[in-house]
Simulated assay, not measured.
Amino acid sequence: MKSRTCSAALTLSFGIIVTFNFSNVKIALAKEANLQEALKIQSRYEESLERVLNRLHRSVGQNRYGEQLNKSLELTVEGGMQYLAQRDLARAKQLLKEAIDLYRGNALAHLIYADVSALEGHRDVAGRSYLDFWSGAEQEADLLREILDPVDRQIVASHISGRLLLYGMELPDQKDSRDLPLLLNMSFEHPSFLHVIAAYGLPVFVAVGIPFFLYRRYFSFNPSPVVDRILYQIYFLLLVSYFLWISHSLWKVKPFFGTAEWEVLVVLLLGICGVFALQILRRVLEHEHERRDPNTIICPHCGKSVLRLATVCPFCNRNLGR
């Protein structure tokens, strides 16, 4: 009887130990999974922030803002790069503090300053700076819309919401985790005129061009070869511009200058100007060649080349006056 009791006690103890160890393993695995997820989220945020700083660097280089804001944004870019690339928190914090002192409404400087403070363990400072960014985002909505695309906006909003939730702080007038002031007009944001032309106008012209050329070829009476040549060249430029737009919007190819919309439309307009310039040059060279031909003369009325033996212009039916 005594041996049975001891055996049962040992079995129970062994079961408790195994269960306890199994629970510890599950907790450790859950912590590891949470850590990996947190690192993944942080990595996405830093990649997003780097894209934002690169866009801001290009905008600042164009001197599109006032002198004071432009200088503050330059310091923000430099401080952000010190934080992301060099991990020099002291230098980054100094530059961002200068940017904020120079222009208090610089929301992006508040955001990166909060990130640096969080890494240094200053949660109170970080929390206040996140709230400063949140509050200032509405005032600088136009600027932030330029440098934060919709994906970046979602990432930034989730990042700030998560940090403040971790610090036990509440967002002002928050409806959900994405209710960032700069997101207020995001879903219903009206696209720019250039974006409408590039995103919707180009595919419409490309699609309409095919039936247009078929109709012109088989149903048009006496089509002009010169006009056809110009139309074919312009349609080719539309195709090139549309594929350039696809490379920017779908494959995320960076534009060589300005925004993607500007690059696409500038290429299209310069190409069309080149088509007409080449046509004018062709006409001038042909006219000069005909003028030098000893067997032809130029009609003084319509400017067409006619045979020297003719007395009436076959193009305008007017007397050549000889």
Rank of each mutant, 00 (worst) to 15 (best):
M1V: 06
S13H: 11
S13A: 15
I16R: 11
I16V: 15
I17F: 12
I17N: 09
V18K: 08
K26I: 08
L29V: 13
K31T: 05
E37L: 12
A38V: 02
L39V: 07
I41R: 14
S43R: 14
R58E: 12
S59Q: 14
V60D: 03
G61K: 06
Y65D: 12
Y65W: 15
G66D: 14
L69M: 14
V77E: 06
E78K: 14
E78Y: 11
G80T: 06
M81H: 15
M81S: 11
Y83M: 03
L84I: 15
L89D: 02
E98Y: 10
E98D: 15
I100Q: 04
L102P: 00
Y103L: 03
A118Q: 10
R123T: 07
D124V: 08
Y130I: 02
L131V: 13
S135K: 14
E140A: 11
L143D: 02
R145V: 06
I147C: 02
L148Q: 05
D152Y: 03
I155K: 00
G168V: 03
M169T: 05
D176K: 00
L180F: 14
L180C: 08
L184R: 11
F188I: 08
I197D: 00
P203F: 04
V208D: 09
V208N: 08
L214T: 14
L214S: 14
Y218C: 11
D228S: 12
Q233A: 08
F236S: 13
L237P: 01
L237Y: 08
L244M: 12
H248K: 03
P255V: 00
V264M: 03
H287V: 00
H287M: 04
H289D: 12
D293E: 12
T296M: 13
C299D: 04
H301D: 07
G303R: 02
A310Y: 11
V312R: 00
C313E: 03
C313W: 00
